[in-house]
Design a protein around this nucleic acid. Sequence first.
RNA 1: GCCGACGUAGCUCAGUUGGUUAGAGCGCCUGAUUGUGGAUCAGGAGGCCGAUGGUUCGAAUCCAUCCGUCGGUACCA
Length: 471
Amino acid sequence: MKIKPRLSRGLRDLLPQTMLARQRVIDTVRRVYETYGFAPLETPAIEYLDVLSGSAGEEAQHSIFRVTNPEDEDLGLRFDLTVPLARVVSQHRQIPFPFKRYQVSQVWRADKPDPGRFRQFTQFDIDTVGAPCGTADTEILAAICDCLEAIGAGPYSVRFSSREILNLLLQHAGIPADLGKDVFRVLDKLEKVGWKRVRSELTTGYVDPSGDPIRGLGLQDAQVGAIEEFLEISNPDRRAVVGRLRDLFSDVDGSGARLDTVESISEDLETLGYGSDRVVLDVSIARGLAYYTGPVFEAVLEDAPQFGSVFGGGRYDGLVARFGGQRIPATGASLGVDRLLAAMEHLGRCGSEQTPAQVLVTVMDKNLRGECLELAFELRRAGVRTEIHSGSGRLGKQLKRADRLKIPYAILIGEDELARGVVTLKQMSVASSAGTHLTDHRAWKAARFGQIEIPRSETVTRLRELLQAGG
RNA sequence: GCCGACGUAGCUCAGUUGGUUAGAGCGCCUGAUUGUGGAUCAGGAGGCCGAUGGUUCGAAUCCAUCCGUCGGUACCA
């Protein structure tokens, strides 16, 4: 019986062209994270189900992929990297605090797939565990900026706020604390659905176009009015936002002190050169997660806002304590690698490389295979990424392969070259641009576009120079 | 999860009121050109028409169910 090659929904193969772009991003981010002193961590994809659900509550369990083992234990695939981190620091007591780690790994969520959203995807997280609110959070925000800068994804905007600010809002507006979680969840949609819909969801609810009833939270007009007034505090200047928050919340006891941390993060960023042009204090961001306790962060690509936030994170001082023991403060952010790459691809900011090879050594004549191999390995030992032709086939087919895979150079060694102690170096891109006017194939071939002869002994040096100069 | 649209070659799509052997363009392979990738020309491969069941003398076409994709909405630790 024939088996149909296929994948379950929400899963996909990442072919070389995709992987090369992805690995460039990952390498860049890793370099940035390491400059901040974050150290790598890896954890298993599979965790005990109760470890995973500990933070999420029952309502989230349906999107966990369940797995089994021969011992028939209740296991699941991790759905983020933060919960496993909390387990690690609770389990390995010898780890000195603060623990600064980065982790790039796959996670799984059994959700409905959407564009840029899959059931298996990669997150690239940094977290600092065991450091109080302050410098650690500033570092996370700065690192997010540095990453986006280094990746070259185009203009971006990093936004932050704080659960503390939202808690002040609850007090100011007279909203019961236990309603906070729902209010934050609704406010988080503001940018996507607009104030009108958020307003109805905060009050009476509504019926969406598909006929689905959306439950309202039943807030009073005065409460919604207070929220609206709060949301109007948007200002591109962070100092102005802090000032207006201080005014607005002056009726809440101790509000001044509770705004100090946000202000000091903002001031530190200012001093370090992360101005309001890149990092905005945006009081409308809430982040859906229930476990955030302090500053919350996100970042969007300004040219691709429809892809949502590519970075998300915040401070979660209560999460580690779920595994028992004392309350350990923690803060961090997560880069949605797949989402970022989907956005970059949409913007045409991903490379189109299909192979890392920089040069193809052709084999024209089986008798000269030895010479070709020798040259190929000489190039490799000099750090040039080299492919050598490894089948049968005419020169035309070999060059066609270089053309297809966009390998920039080809090397030709035949009897002629060997006799004269040279090799022919062909720059593939030249004929594609220079030869378009030639309609006769023989003439096109005879033109020998982009070809130069160089002494065999200088091949490695010359090619390295060319690659360095032009890529 | 809910609502809707759509599933025909690797991709984009034709396919008459249900009627013989299901087509095109692009892509792929081979050759013209045995030491030259593009263009051109010639040829070739590639399909259980998403799956299963039903209606019918006869189904890519009609019906049911399932699966999948896309859009909207909800959720997103």
